[in-house]
Design a protein around this nucleic acid. Structure first.
Lengths: 373, 373
DNA sequence: TATATTGATTCAAACGTTTGAATAGCGTTG
DNA sequence: CAACGCTATTCAAACGTTTGAATCAATATA
């Protein structure tokens, strides 16, 4: 009953049990080209025994020998952020057909963890690394190690093309414009805006798009109604910020008929804040989010939002990385930055300004005069 | 200059560059006990060179030699289900301090993928496997392979103790009772219930708890107001089912003042369905969910729900698995099933029945006579 | 009969580490 | 001065695979 120390069945076990050599067993079980020359009876015998013993080849030994791990690191800055999930899914699906194993790592928005995991990607010989990060990964010195070890890297959700890193990113400026134009078309001319935190790269271009489109569409962005999130340490902080600012904007005393939030979680926070003050969405005030994450979809009223093609971005990331791996050594083709197009998803949280006025009048439930034009 | 084929820096590279042998370099860099005997100057020199070259030890070679991978497979049935995230987080945090790498795999509710990944856990020599599954993993034959290879396995979200598998699970019966008692205390005597799908193991005990508590508390469970979800192929299907049933229960014509949904996503669907029919939550009808996932927390009104201690369950899973790994060979201590206590989280979606009646009268917005006692 | 040819199988080296045992140098001690 | 004990370093084997080259029958060809 020779208890193997490792507890795992190896080729040697099968060799002994079958009477053939380790080589033969390996050739058969790994379906190497040579296995054509192996007698059919032998093949069958070996296969049967392998199955009986519950043999599974040791990926470590195999990778060591073959010098290929068929592994790609996916470093997610925060898996509890619903934003990351569809991207990760896309990557996963894109990788799957190519037979690569995604090594999913969740940095939990902690810088130290992030570095640790990047480390592990290197140690585990990930053949490439895809980073999903809105804000982490500023300038870790691990980056140079990644370079030194010739590991292709790609980032989604951030533009690091300037540093020579393949990047996939939604067109934030276009997205911001889309949102404002939608509100303008609905007749909203006074809209409050919650900008993203300083350190997030999405914030600036999104705001730029908003400003430009607002100017063109004749939407007034009163500076007393423009807020900025302090930081996003976790998914809930956007929500809380949104709720807080909703109250601030009501307190401000400046009329507005719609709120454009930095992202969906913030928008949900706005809805909460408004609601607590007795302001209904969309009857008294419209709200627009950004991203199109699950909670925005299942909220009632369903959130009108600017959809990022998250899954597609993941698929594209996988596609690019695989391509880079195929193209044998070091050779860069095409542009480093891939910009995807956002899409307006109109749901129930926005309604035309005239309709709001009507509803507000009819319901007789307005508790604030500060709202509505 | 010597372009290594693998592209990775190895001990040999450092040995050559430093003039010492591979052994010495290994001893220094892995901080083996022997490294005390290595001259301080040598140590420093080797470390410097390793850093310069960007050396990272090859986890494959190391694991092969050391016969330990420091890896634990986490097989999640669906990462896009917000239910899974806190569990995974808990596991991760529990594992981290022990220096184990969680190998997160997302089965996407696909049986085939699930099997593939289980396969990979074996091949990657995961030292243990933790499965997060509400319903997959019925009787894959991989299970016997896991046994043959002596890999400890643990499942959270399902009771497989009968098959000899360590299981961690919320006390569904207590949870169901908690929910009903809460509604009873609020004065709800007619409540609609949406049961979980047949194939989910949580469904039955939860329903049992509901029935018992209802009988004790004098809550009427009219069979015309009891529904059953057909199946949960993805997180959205619960939502859609909830919305559909909400309309059915209104159409039924039987009065009710509250809805107890199988889980949060279903509850959110109920809110949506009621809302579309002009029934407001909580003013006209209370709704209770189960699980306490993110979307329930950020919805407005915030969802009253039965909280599963998901993170704690993950931590416990990690704790148990680590314990099993420490206790050297094969020895089972204690019970296989760990039941955690659910907790009532009262938020805004439930309100006392009298308050509902009052609100309903005041608002004058009731559009259905079928609702309210 | 010697020599290819083929078919089936095995040898042995290698992948990058780790580690028990071995080595070499050198100062102490009996 | 032989024996010992240090310190600093290296040897060599092993982990479980894979694979180019080698082996060895047996059969076909010259």
């Amino acid at each position: 009953m020779g208890q193997r120390k490792s507890g795992h069945v190896t080729l040697l076990d099968i060799a002994r049990a079958s009477g053939f050599s380790v080589s033969t067993v390996s050739i058969v079980l790994s379906e190497a080209p040579l296995s054509q020359n192996v007698a059919a009876t032998t093949r069958a015998r070996i296969r049967v025994i392998a199955r009986q013993l519950g043999y599974h080849p040791d990926a470590y030994a195999r990778s060591l020998r073959r010098r290929s791990t068929q592994t790609i690191g996916i470093l997610v800055f925060d898996l509890s952020d619903p934003f990351c999930i569809p991207i990760m899914r896309g990557i996963q699906d894109g990788l799957r057909t190519a037979g690569y194993l995604p090594l999913v790592m969740d940095a939990q928005t902690e810088r130290e963890l992030f570095d640790n995991y990047l480390h592990m990607c290197l140690e585990r010989r990930a053949e490439a690394v895809i980073v999903i990060a809105s804000w982490v990964f500023e300038e870790t010195n691990l980056l140079s190690d990644i370079r030194k070890n010739n590991v292709p890297i790609l980032i989604v959700g951030r533009d690091l093309a300037a540093r020579g890193i393949n990047s996939i990113l939604v067109d934030n400026e276009a997205g911001g414009a889309l949102a404002i134009r939608h509100l303008a078309e609905l007749g909203h001319h006074r809209v409050a805006v919650i900008r993203g935190p300083q350190e997030m790269c999405d914030s600036e271009p999104r705001w730029a798009g908003i400003q430009k489109a607002a100017a063109q569409a004749g939407v007034c962005l009163d500076e007393r109604l423009v807020f900025q999130l302090p930081g996003l340490s976790n998914p809930m902080s956007g929500f809380e910020g949104g709720a807080r600012f909703a109250k601030s904007m009501l307190a401000e005393g400046v009329p507005f008929t719609a709120v454009l939030a930095f992202d969906d979680m913030t928008a949900l926070g706005v809805v909460r804040g408004l609601s607590q003050a007795g302001v209904r969405v969309p009857e008294d005030c419209s709200v627009v989010g950004f991203d199109d994450v699950l909670p925005a979809e299942v909220a009632t009223p369903a959130m009108t939002t600017i959809r990022q093609p998250l899954r597609e971005m993941g698929l594209e990331a996988a596609r690019r990385v695989l391509e880079e791996l195929r193209r044998a050594p070091r050779k860069h083709g095409g542009s480093l930055l891939h910009r995807t197009s956002p899409e307006l998803v109109v749901r129930m949280s926005t309604v035309s300004a005239p309709a709001q006025r009507r509803a507000a009048k009819m319901s007789g439930r307005r508790r604030r005069e500060t709202i509505a034009s």
